[in-house]
Design a protein around this nucleic acid. Structure first.
Lengths: 211, 211
DNA sequence: CAGAATGGATAGTGGCGCTTTCCGCTATCT
DNA sequence: AGATAGCGGAAAGCGCCACTATCCATTCTG
């Protein structure tokens, strides 16, 4: 397969493919002569993965590069890959808002109560604390009363996710499903939450009008 | 309060505040003379809201402007505000991936089975279909088996969210909590899901090592 | 009354994700 | 065999975004 065909198969413009190769997201084609190269199904799959992570997951090129490094790390155990993927997609830390200390204690307490085996330096711990401190700073601190319910829901979802990931026997498919499940799963979950909001709001506040 | 004090109170640089005023995110101060203006607590709150939506929710300036328009719309019923907020924060529609038609039918079926009162043109419907089609295109189409579990979790979360929003008696606080709950709630939910993933993975794949 | 701060306008900056252009070479069609 | 289209690689350019810097005349502050 030459680059034009790869482009047609994936809907990605040729200069963009060249750009991804330059940026280290996509391996270069196999050179058959100084200025000809062949691409294969692996390139098609990789390119689709890149676009999925960017378009649906909203990842930057840099984040995709890190995620793919985790995917390509040979024979890492699942648990490590998950950690690496989470590191890679963690949003850039904004400045700590007021009240972050108290929010950190809230998060720590939640993790302890739940018995979650999470390292304190996990980026999601801080991300959660920042979100809670922001809510507090906006005068919506009572949001914390919803936390346990959120955590219940997430435990259930996470168990199902892990069972789903575990069904992939081949290691490289498994690793990829960890990444895809994390990134695209977020998009699925937030879309579903919005739909459920609309429904709950329709039941609560409207006779039947939909939005 | 003059602009320097507003800047110190919120941690937002003066030129940035001026920029937000220019962009229509923040109302101008009350002029006391041709080149002096006063700002008040409303400006502090609004500025914090803007930064929360951008930093935690990841919204663009344009999205924040639309969200705030919904917040400021006088006396709109909650249901409408929710719809407007969702419109405003809907991610820009990427090109439809292959298999979008089938994914749309899957989503439609889910909504019908659930009895959700959602308009078919709701942007989250399409966002969900795009996410599912992407999973399919990456060879992870069996993710759909998790959908019902995700939907269960979201129904529970959404009910709690609406109850929480409904506790705000004053209308403007209520409207703001709809917006904040939607945007910042997403961040909370995805952080919790990641933590739950790490825990589930630790239990499943590791003796006790944390990530 | 000196020095700092202000409102308002205009222009500039740095990062990101491409896109354009150019070159000499290669594959393919007829 | 010649015409045409496509290729790989490098370099420069572009459009958007979220600020940031500079300037000015005016006004507040010590």
């Amino acid at each position: 397969m030459r680059i034009g065909e790869l482009s047609r198969a994936t809907g990605v413009a040729i200069p963009t493919i060249k750009y991804y190769v330059r940026e280290g997201l996509l391996p270069a084609g196999q050179l058959t002569s100084p200025n000809q190269a062949r691409y294969d199904d692996g390139h098609v799959r990789r390119l689709r993965l890149i676009r999925g992570l960017m378009d649906v997951g909203g990842l930057s090129v840099a984040a995709v590069r890190e995620v793919l490094a985790a995917v390509d790390a040979p024979e890492e155990p699942v648990h490590k890959v998950l950690g690496a993927a989470q590191e890679a997609i963690a949003p850039p830390q904004a400045a700590a808002p007021d009240g972050i200390e108290e929010a950190r204690r809230t998060v720590e307490g939640l993790i302890r109560r739940r018995g979650w085996r999470v390292a304190p330096q996990n980026p999601s711990v801080e991300a959660l604390a920042v979100a809670l401190a922001t809510l507090q700073g906006l005068g919506h601190g009572d949001f914390e009363e919803l936390l346990e319910g959120y955590a219940d829901a997430c435990e259930r979802v996470a168990d199902a996710d892990l069972a789903w990931v575990g069904r992939n026997a081949e290691v490289d498919r498994l690793v990829e499903s960890v990444v895809v499940g994390t990134v695209v799963g977020d998009a699925v979950l937030s879309a579903l939450r919005r739909l459920a909001h609309v429904d709950a709001s329709a039941r609560r506040y409207e006779g039947g009008e939909t939005v």
